[in-house]
Amino acid sequence: MLIPFNKPYFVGTETRYIEEAVRSGKLSGDGAFTRRCEQWLQHHLGVPRVLLTTSGTDALELAALLLDLEPGDEVLLPSFTFSSTATAFALRGAKLIFVDSSSDSPAMDTTQLEALVTPRTRAIVPVHYAGVACDMEAVRAVAERHGLDVVEDAAQALDGNFRGQPLGTLGALGAFSFHETKNVTAGGEGGMLAITDLQLVARAEILREKGTNRAAFFRGEVAKYSWVDIGSSFLPAEINAAFLWAQLEDLEAIQQRRRAIWVRYFAELQPLAQLGVGLPFVPDYTAQNGHLFYLVCRNLTERTALIAELKQQDITAIFHYQPLHSSPYYASRHDGRPLPWAEHYADCLVRLPLYTELEESQQQRIIQAVLRFYQVL
């Protein structure tokens, strides 16, 4: 039987909550389930405001709008990341300055940040790859020295932490994803923006509501609502919030299961490290959140052969990002700096199946298949 790379998890109460939302007569968002999710997440993360969005991409775009970027302003971000990290700021006219990955992690090499800051730099956008924290102490130190904004791309990082503080709460803004490939989902698509800077809360509500002060109107703070700023339609439907609420109620159990799968992979695939195959690096200042497990093969040929071998055994393993600095869209705009580690991970990283319902017998099949490929079983 085929083992997929990902399988969305259903708690069992999603349809009941969706039916409840339908019967409420409030489907367009900001209803009871939206408020319930936002309040729960605010308490869970310890932030003053959380806004649900239609996707993690929209959360990043909302963050970029809040920064008031002007054409030519520079944003530092990793090259080894999903396109949404970049497009959110490119849409505002920003010049993207890509940072290489580090030798021991696909996350960006924070030691390179200082040298890349110029008078036009406005923001740093760290990505917490695989739910493992980027070095936020280093990021924040550079940001404070130069007066820069920090927007965390925490799409993969719910329930991750940096020195005990939740990821997505260490900058002014943190963008999360509830896509079906993430630890919890809002029914296939969804996201949220965590806001730690109180001065941004009122405007964030306006931008999320198409540039109107509609949220303030419904709270009775203004007599009528009108168009007061730029913005877009970032508010998700109440059905998505209902689905997400079911998942959040079961978050502890979901995380416990996913972390256990990750730990088993890490323990049983240790023999590969003796061959020079890379396993995930988790620094002392953080912990993995069970989002994904990857190997770093020794070269592209080996990675291609491993994926093909696993496919022959009905196991779906896949690679990840292609470097954004050399992408068809951005290659001609890149400043020409070589980013060898980003290219290394693009060629060599392979992700193994990891989802909440992955059975122990299925995981054992995967582990044995990988060990046989490397002839260490």
Rank of each mutant, 00 (worst) to 15 (best):
F218S: 15
W227D: 08
R208L: 11
A267W: 08
I239Y: 04
Y225H: 14
Y265N: 14
E205M: 13
R257P: 07
A260W: 07
W245L: 08
F217R: 12
A241Y: 07
A242I: 07
G276V: 14
A246L: 11
A253C: 06
N213V: 09
A215N: 12
Y225C: 05
A215D: 11
A237H: 05
G276Y: 06
A267N: 00
V277H: 00
N240E: 10
F266P: 01
I230C: 09
A267I: 07
Q256N: 13
W245G: 05
Q247A: 03
Q256I: 00
L235K: 02
L251D: 02
D250E: 11
E221M: 15
Q255W: 12
V263G: 12
F266G: 08
E205I: 13
R208M: 14
W245T: 00
I254T: 14
I261L: 11
E221V: 07
G231H: 10
A216I: 04
E205T: 11
V228W: 13
P236N: 09
V263Y: 14
L269C: 12
E249R: 01
R219C: 09
G220Y: 02
A246I: 06
R208D: 05
E238K: 07
D250W: 07
Q270M: 12
A267Y: 03
A253H: 02
K210T: 15
I254Y: 03
L248D: 00
W245A: 04
E209D: 13
Y265C: 03
L275C: 10
E238N: 01
R208S: 15
W245D: 09
A253L: 09
K210H: 14
S226A: 10
E238R: 08
K224T: 05
K224G: 10
R257F: 00
G211K: 03
A246K: 10
Q247K: 00
Y265R: 07
A216K: 12
G276L: 09
F217C: 14
L251Y: 11
A260C: 05
W262G: 02
Q255C: 14
E209Y: 08
Y225G: 01
I254A: 01
K210G: 08
V277K: 04
Q256C: 07
E268N: 00
A215E: 11
R259L: 06
Y225I: 04
V222Y: 02
L272T: 15
E209G: 06
A237N: 04
E221N: 13
A242R: 02
I261C: 06
L272N: 10
I206S: 08
A267F: 04
R214K: 15
G231S: 01
V222P: 13
I254H: 03
I239S: 02
R264L: 00
T212E: 09
V228A: 05
A273E: 06
S233M: 08
I254W: 00
Q255M: 15
S232V: 12
A216Q: 15
S226P: 10
G231C: 01
D229W: 01
Q270L: 15
Q270F: 08
F217Y: 15
R219G: 10
L244S: 08
S232H: 04
G211H: 10
E209L: 01
E268P: 05
A253E: 14
S233A: 09
L248N: 06
V263R: 13
I261H: 04
E249M: 09
P271T: 15
I230P: 03
A246T: 06
S232M: 10
R208W: 08
R257A: 09
E268K: 15
P271H: 14
P271D: 14
L235E: 01
R259S: 07
F243T: 09
Q256F: 00
G276E: 00
W262F: 13
